[in-house]
Computed example of a mutant assay.
Amino acid sequence: MNHSNKLLAIKLAHTLIWIFFVVVIFYVVYSGITGIINIYTWLGIGFVIGEGIVLLLFKMFCPLTVLARKYSDSQKDNFDIFLPNWLAKHNKLIFTTIFLIGLALVVIQTFFKF
């Protein structure tokens, strides 16, 4: 497999994993809004926290981004994922904020039932 095909495979995998985490984050928000908190909510919270730990271990880079660097010299924020550049650039800030809102809602629903 040549470099461009390897980069394409990484971009595809990275995008699919990103979609998974976006769905999980919005499920956490949904759970917090509706009060429907179940094992999937807690698993989702665990997955996102786990992803945060991985990012911390890799100095705030996804391991797939580190791997993709071997196959590209691009300075664009979206060189390793199929996202618009602006979203790739602000991805962590946007989705961390959404997740923290969802997490706060889940905690409120869990401990302060309204």
Rank of each mutant, 00 (worst) to 15 (best):
L43S: 08
D77G: 07
L57M: 14
I36R: 11
N85S: 09
A68S: 06
G102R: 04
G44T: 02
K92S: 12
K70P: 07
N38S: 11
I53E: 07
D77V: 05
L64I: 03
N91H: 14
V66C: 05
M1H: 09
I108S: 06
A13M: 13
F82L: 15
F99G: 01
K92G: 04
F99L: 00
V106Q: 00
P63R: 09
I94W: 01
N38Q: 13
V23N: 13
K76V: 10
G50H: 13
D73C: 11
T34E: 11
I108M: 10
H14L: 02
K89Q: 14
L55S: 08
F47D: 02
G32H: 04
P63T: 07
A9K: 03
I33L: 13
I36F: 13
H90I: 03
D77F: 15
G35I: 12
R69V: 12
S4A: 15
D77I: 05
V24Q: 03
T97R: 06
Y30S: 10
K70A: 10
P63G: 08
N91M: 14
K11A: 07
L57W: 09
R69L: 15
L64V: 04
Y27I: 00
F82P: 00
T96P: 02
I101H: 08
G32R: 03
F79P: 00
H3N: 14
S72Y: 15
G46E: 04
V28T: 10
L100Y: 10
G35Q: 05
G35K: 01
Q109W: 02
H3V: 05
V106D: 03
T34F: 13
V28D: 03
W86I: 07
V66I: 10
N85F: 07
I33T: 13
L43K: 11
D73H: 12
G50M: 09
H14D: 03
A9T: 09
I19M: 12
Y27G: 03
F114S: 11
Y71K: 02
L8Y: 15
L100H: 07
A13Q: 01
I17C: 10
F82R: 05
F95V: 09
T15Y: 01
W86G: 02
L7N: 03
N2C: 08
I39Y: 10
K6D: 03
F21R: 01
I108T: 12
A88D: 02
L64W: 08
I19W: 09
H14W: 01
L8W: 12
S4Y: 08
I94V: 14
I45D: 01
L64Y: 04
F99Y: 07
A68W: 02
K92Y: 14
